[in-house]
Design a binder for these strands. Structure first.
Length: 540
DNA sequence: AAGCCTAGCGCC
DNA sequence: AGGGCGCTAGGCTT
């Protein structure tokens, strides 16, 4: 059964299957939801990110929901239209210099009648050629939205003292605000001394290029890959400076002050935030947590981190998508790349890895391009699948993931370039640049099908883990094993030590379920490695 | 001062 | 001339 949650001027209507309505003041919503949650309804509401945090704060957990905003975005993508409404986004703050008053319009767009929208979405899903897949995607997306809020609520356990210690270890003591740590000062002086061309503006890439050239180093940029190719004594300290400076600015003491409170890092996860369906994050750079700071991610006393990682997820996804039996066989063990080597297709694991990544990203140079023909011979269906997605993109067509998320159409400027290049008397440069733009869009659609389907698998995995950890008898989320982190193909559960084995089992079993859910019968396996550790850095 | 852009680098 | 992101600093414009 489902219960639609509909806002009505300071009150909230809860509408059940039979059309029965209970209208409660917003202040009493949590208890009204708690009362009904016992019947395991699916909560149909406009936006999990808005409705769920206050419920969790009141100690009320919700098992299932349908997120109208996220599903609308999916359906709009499929229909090739813009999302139908602004979903309750806060109105733009009033600005005195604004030329026209947008508030009325913004409010109107923000008003979504949940029951009406729910009916519309059900009809749209039923009318889709693959309603079962789309239903699954809507459920997975919505479960992800619940999990995202729960992970922010619980927070990733973070030992601020350990973080401070590791910063001090490599940077020196925390400097006064606005000052540079001692280790960076020393490295900057060293670079200056070794270049010996006067002051070196080390933090400004364009000015640094000028200084390097003054020192006789032929560089076009200050990218570390380019600097590494140079043979000069100043390069090593310069690269070291960049690494430490990055740590200091991105994940240093300021980051710690801003993002870690009461032993927890609580980023906002943004389900569906990426065009492919991957999650994005907002604040703290949660999805780019550098390995350097992972020693600070530490389980509470008596607890452990159960860290699970899906092995070679994307090539396995491609094998399942394309039904490539040979690649499924190569992935039968724990290491798909080793399986590709064993099949005789390529000489080394590195060749297998770089070649597969190149096939999925559209690499055209180096080792990746070299081994592609061999991979194509051994795994014609898998390679053919991404090639065909690339060709579709080059023609300006949309592609879709396994469960039905569609890629956007290229911008109108792209189409105009293509047609201009195809017309009589087009300049050669126009043709070349249009061709290059077409290839570029093809690389996007090529990757979209794999990355997007991997995101679907990951959502199904996460939902399965959450379901297995769910305790019907209630209790606070954080009193029992709970998800605390997700990065595309990796999950972390914070768990009391006495439960880690069952948590590990849940992570494994849910991975198997996810493969069957997304692909039905498939020979492709999705092994996950699970590590039970005190610190995130001890995993892998 | 605020907004926007680029360069660069972190993650998957 | 390999896909997707977020974030920071510098530097420019408004």
């Amino acid at each position: 059964m489902q219960i639609i949650v509909e806002r009505r001027a300071g009150t909230v209507a809860l509408i059940d299957d039979d059309g029965g309505e209970a209208v409660v003041p917003e202040t009493e919503l949590a208890s009204a939801v708690a009362e009904r949650e016992a019947e395991h309804p699916r909560w149909v509401w406009t936006d999990t990110a808005q409705w769920y945090p206050p419920l969790l704060a009141a100690g009320v957990r919700v098992e299932r929901c349908h997120d109208l905003r996220l599903v609308d975005a999916l359906l709009a993508g499929i229909a090739g239209t813009a999302p139908s409404r602004e979903w309750g986004r806060a109105p733009a703050p009033a600005r005195s210099d604004t030329l026209f008053d947008v508030d009325d319009e913004t409010d109107a767009r923000a008003t979504v009648i949940a029951s009406t929208e729910w009916a519309r979405q059900q009809a749209a899903i039923a009318a889709h050629p693959e309603p079962a897949r789309l239903t699954l995607l809507a459920a997975a997306e919505s479960a992800g939205a619940l999990t995202a809020v729960e992970m922010q609520h619980a927070g990733l356990p973070w030992n601020a003292a350990a973080h401070d210690a590791l910063l001090t270890e490599v940077l020196g003591a925390r400097p006064a605000p606005g000052r540079r740590p001692a280790a960076l000062d020393a490295l900057a002086s060293e670079v200056e001394r070794l270049l010996d061309v006067g002051p070196v503006p080390i933090d400004s890439p364009p000015a640094l290029v000028t200084a390097l050239r003054r020192a006789g180093l032929e560089v076009a940029s200050t990218r570390s890959a380019e600097l590494k190719r140079l043979d000069h004594p100043a390069i090593a300290p310069l690269l070291q400076y960049k690494t430490l400076s990055r740590l200091h600015t991105a994940n240093g003491w300021n980051w710690l002050d801003e993002w870690v409170r009461d032993g927890r890092f609580r980023p906002t996860f943004v389900p569906g935030g990426v065009v492919t369906g991957r999650w994005a994050s907002d604040g703290g750079g949660a999805l780019q947590l550098p390995k350097q700071v992972r020693p600070a991610v530490q389980a509470d006393d008596g607890w452990a981190l159960v860290v699970a990682d899906a092995s070679q997820l994307e090539p396995r996804i491609l094998a399942a998508l394309s039904g490539d039996a040979a690649m499924a066989r190569a992935g039968a063990g724990e290491d798909l790349y080793a399986g590709i080597v064993a099949s005789g297709a390529v000489p080394s694991r590195e060749h297998a890895k770089v070649g597969m990544l190149g096939a999925m990203y559209g690499g055209t140079t180096g080792v990746s391009a070299q081994v592609l023909p061999r991979l194509a011979r051994s795994f014609p269906q898998a390679i053919g699948f991404v090639e065909s997605a690339a060709r579709a993109g080059e023609r300006g067509e949309r592609v879709r993931t396994r469960l039905g998320r569609t890629s956007p159409l290229p911008p109108s400027s792209w189409r105009e370039r293509q047609s201009a290049a195809g017309s009589e008397g087009a300049a050669e440069s126009e043709v070349r640049s249009a061709r290059s733009a077409a290839r570029s869009w093809g690389r996007f659609t090529r990757n979209f099908v794999v990355q997007g389907t991997a995101a679907e698998w990951a959502l199904a995995w996460m939902a399965g883990v959450r379901r297995r950890l769910w305790r019907a008898d209630g209790g606070a989320l954080t009193d029992q094993p709970h998800l605390v982190f997700f990065v595309h193909d990796e999950l972390i559960v914070h768990s009391p030590r006495e439960h880690v084995d069952e948590v590990a089992r849940a992570l494994q079993e849910a991975a198997g379920d996810a493969g069957r859910l997304v692909f039905g019968e498939t020979a492709v396996t999705f092994p996950v490695t699970v590590a039970i550790v005190d610190r995130y850095s001890e995993a892998k």
